[in-house]
C-alpha cells in the first residue's frame, strides 16, 4: 500500500476509535473525579483518586451483586453448554424417528421473541417459588437453539469414521460423546461459553422481574438502583460502579474476540 493511503487509513481508524471509545473512556475518567470536577465538566480527572470506588461499595451491596451475577452467569454457561451439546450430538450422530420434527421445533424457538412470553414465564417462576433465587435466574435459559446450531456446525466437521470406529470398538454412545466429541470441540465450546457468559452477565429485563431483594439482585439491576439513588448527587460514584460492572466482560471480550468472531459467523451463516 502506498504511504499516503496508509497514513489516511490510520487517520480514519484513529478518528473512528476515538469516537467509538469515547463513552467508555468518559466513564473511566469520571469515575476518578470528585463532585466539583464532574460539575465543572472536565474531561480528565486531576488525580487518580480511588475514593469513588471505595464509596460505591458502601452505597449499594455491590459485592453481593457481583457474586450473584458471576454465579448465575457461570451456571447458565455450564447449563447451556451441556444441554446444547447433548442436543447437537443427537442431531449429528444419531438417526431416529422424529428428529427432523424436533429440529424444526428448535428453529421455531428462534422466532418467538422472549419478551412476548415473559409474563407467563414470570408466573411460572412465581408459582415454582423460584423468585429471588438462582434457580429462577438460570434454568429458563439452559436450552438455546443458537448454541445447539453452533455446536452442530462444529460436530458436523468431525469425521463420521471416528464414530463408526468407536462403535466397532464397543464404546458406548455417551462415552464417545463425553470422551471424544467434547474434547475435540473445545474451541467451539469456549466460543459458546464466552457468548453465553457475556449475554447472561449483561441480562437486564429478566433479573429485573424475578428479583426484588438486595441479596438476590444482579449487578445490572444494581446499576439501575445506583443510578436512581445517586443521580443528583454523585456521578463519580455511579461511574465507578459502571466501570466495575463492565470490566469483567470487557476483559473477557478482549481475550476472546477472535474466537467469538469466528464462532458467531459460523453459527450464523453456514
Amino acid at each position: 500500500m502506498i504511504l499516503a493511503k496508509r497514513i489516511s487509513l490510520y487517520t480514519v481508524l484513529v478518528i473512528c476509535a476515538i469516537i467509538m471509545m469515547f463513552p467508555i473512556f468518559y466513564a473511566f475518567s469520571i469515575s476518578f473525579m470528585d463532585g466539583g470536577e464532574v460539575m465543572g465538566g472536565q474531561l480528565l480527572p486531576s488525580s487518580l483518586s480511588l475514593d469513588n470506588y471505595l464509596e460505591v461499595f458502601q452505597k449499594v451491596p455491590l459485592l453481593t451483586y457481583l457474586l450473584n451475577s458471576f454465579v448465575t452467569s457461570a451456571i447458565v454457561m455450564i447449563g447451556q453448554l451441556l444441554v446444547s451439546s447433548l442436543a447437537a450430538f443427537a442431531f449429528v450422530f444419531m438417526k431416529f424417528k422424529g428428529r427432523d420434527f424436533v429440529f424444526f421445533l428448535f428453529i421455531s424457538t428462534m422466532m418467538i421473541p422472549w419478551e412476548a412470553t415473559m409474563v407467563p414465564n414470570f408466573m411460572t417462576i412465581q408459582s415454582l417459588g423460584w423468585t429471588n433465587s438462582y434457580l429462577g435466574l438460570t434454568i429458563p435459559f439452559f436450552a438455546l437453539a443458537f448454541g445447539t446450531f453452533l455446536l452442530r456446525q462444529h460436530f458436523k466437521t468431525i469425521p463420521q469414521e471416528l464414530y463408526e470406529a468407536s462403535q466397532v470398538a464397543g464404546i458406548s454412545r455417551f462415552r464417545f460423546f463425553w470422551n471424544v466429541i467434547l474434547p475435540v470441540s473445545r474451541s467451539s465450546l469456549i466460543t459458546l461459553g464466552i457468548y453465553s457468559f457475556l449475554t447472561n452477565w449483561n441480562m437486564y429485563l429478566w433479573p429485573l422481574l424475578v428479583t426484588n431483594t438486595e441479596s438476590a439482585r444482579t449487578v445490572q439491576i444494581g446499576l439501575k438502583q445506583l443510578q436512581t439513588q445517586e443521580i443528583a448527587s454523585d456521578w463519580g460514584i455511579v461511574m465507578a460502579g459502571v466501570v466495575i460492572v463492565i470490566l469483567p466482560t470487557l476483559l473477557l471480550l478482549f481475550a476472546g474476540q477472535k474466537k467469538l468472531q469466528k464462532g458467531l459467523t459460523q453459527g450464523a451463516i453456514k
Binding site: 468518559y26 449483561n202 460492572v245 463492565i246
Partner: peptide
Amino acid sequence: IKGIGIFRTLFSSTMGMSVAASSVIWMFM
C-alpha cells in the same frame, strides 16, 4: 496493516458493554 488487531478489539468492545452500563453512561452524556 500493522496494529489492526488493536482497532478490531476496540471496535468490537461495545459487545462487552451491558445495556444498563451503557445507558447510564449515555444518560450522563
